Simulated assay, not measured.
Amino acid sequence: MEDKSSQYELIESLVFQYQSGSSKAGLKLIQSFGYNPTSKELSGYLNKYFSLLRYGVIKFNDKDTRQFLRQFTSNSQLKQELIPFYQYAHTKKATRKLVQMINFRLRHIPDEDMIHDLCELLLIQAKKYKKQGTKTNFCGYLMNSYRYKVYDHYKYLFRDLLYSHRIEMLEDHIDDNSEINIEETLVPDLYFQNETEEIGLNWILGKTAEFPFSHLTMFERTLISLYDHKGMTYEEVGAQMGYHRDTIWTKRKQIKQKLRKLINNPPNE
Rank of each mutant, 00 (worst) to 15 (best):
E81W: 10
S145T: 12
L216C: 14
F16R: 11
G238N: 06
L157K: 10
E235A: 15
M101L: 04
F219Q: 02
T247F: 08
Q17A: 12
T250R: 12
L69E: 07
M143R: 13
L82F: 01
N177K: 15
Q77G: 02
Y243N: 07
H173S: 15
Q80C: 00
N75Q: 08
P37H: 05
L27E: 14
E197G: 01
L201P: 05
Y88F: 11
D117E: 06
I109N: 08
E81D: 15
G242T: 04
I263H: 07
N265W: 12
T185D: 14
H90G: 04
L52C: 00
E171M: 06
F50W: 00
K131E: 14
V187I: 13
M169A: 14
K256Y: 07
K256C: 08
L122E: 07
D160R: 11
K261V: 06
Q19E: 03
P37R: 03
N144E: 03
H90A: 13
T247V: 06
Y18I: 09
E120W: 03
S214Q: 14
L10A: 09
M218P: 00
L121W: 00
K149A: 11
L190E: 13
E171S: 11
E195L: 01
R107M: 00
E112M: 02
Q100S: 13
G44C: 03
L122G: 07
K261F: 06
S76R: 13
L205Y: 14
Y243T: 00
M101D: 12
E2L: 11
K97F: 02
P37K: 02
I182T: 14
E235M: 06
I115Y: 05
L46P: 11
I199N: 04
A25C: 06
R54M: 01
A126P: 07
Q240F: 13
I199W: 03
P37F: 01
Q31H: 05
Y49A: 09
Q19F: 08
I115E: 04
V150W: 02
L82W: 01
Y55M: 05
I11K: 10
K24F: 10
I224F: 00
V57T: 02
L29R: 05
F16W: 05
T217M: 10
S13Q: 13
Y86A: 11
Y35V: 01
R252S: 08
L259D: 05
Y146V: 02
K93I: 09
K253Y: 03
L201R: 14
K97M: 01
E2G: 09
I115L: 05
F192D: 11
A89S: 13
Q257C: 04
L142Q: 07
D62N: 15
I182Q: 15
R252G: 01
I30H: 00
T95S: 09
R221N: 13
L223I: 15
E112R: 09
V150S: 01
D111H: 08
Y227R: 15
R260M: 10
E168R: 15
W249V: 00
S32T: 04
I204H: 01
K4G: 01
E184A: 08
C139G: 06
F211L: 11
N264L: 14
N268C: 09
L216V: 05
P212M: 08
I115H: 00
L186P: 06
R70Q: 15
P212R: 06
D152N: 14
N137I: 01
L98P: 02
Y141T: 07
K135T: 03
R70G: 15
T73G: 06
L123F: 08
